[in-house]
């Protein structure tokens, strides 16, 4: 079978060669459709994973166990900014640097380009202002 997914990498994960690992250890054919990733900065890969169903599941488990985030294509994080109190709780959780808060004005900044869709902000916002959207 073949499966199309987005793999998202936090900055510190970009130093490792996950693709080689899953080709070698899990017998997966990887086809990278789109790469938007930089060493030490993090980013995303749009890939197809080819192989037996169990092999793909095992490879996905290996990746998530190591901190790689796997999402269906086209999912994005939406923020209802109007109700934001600028507490910063989401920035504390955000591992990618997509959510930041700081001097001088201490209001929330959201840079969706950096988002790896790990969904930690969805759980962490005390006002519950984040949601995951699936749109192509």
């Amino acid at each position: 079978m073949e499966k199309k997914v987005v793999l998202s990498f936090a900055p510190e994960l970009t130093f490792r060669s996950f693709m080689n690992d899953i080709i070698r250890d899990y017998n997966i054919n990887i086809n990278i459709i789109k790469a938007d990733i930089e060493i030490a900065k993090g980013g995303k890969l749009l890939v197809t994973l080819g192989g037996e169903e169990e092999e793909i599941a095992a490879a996905e488990k290996f990746l998530t166990d190591n901190g790689v985030v796997i999402n269906p294509m086209g999912s994005t994080i939406k923020l209802n900014k109007e109700r934001c109190i600028a507490c910063g709780a989401c920035t504390s959780a955000c591992p990618s640097g997509a959510l930041t808060i700081g001097a001088p004005d201490w209001t929330l900044n959201f840079n969706p380009d950096k988002c790896i869709i790990c969904k930690l902000c969805v759980k962490s916002c005390p006002m519950k202002l984040f949601s995951v959207e699936f749109a192509e």
Partner: peptide, 13 residues
């Protein structure tokens, strides 16, 4: 260690 607030300085001001 990366730090972040839990209370709003923006609102406190």
């Amino acid at each position: 260690i990366r730090t972040a607030p839990m209370s709003s300085l923006y609102k406190a001001r």
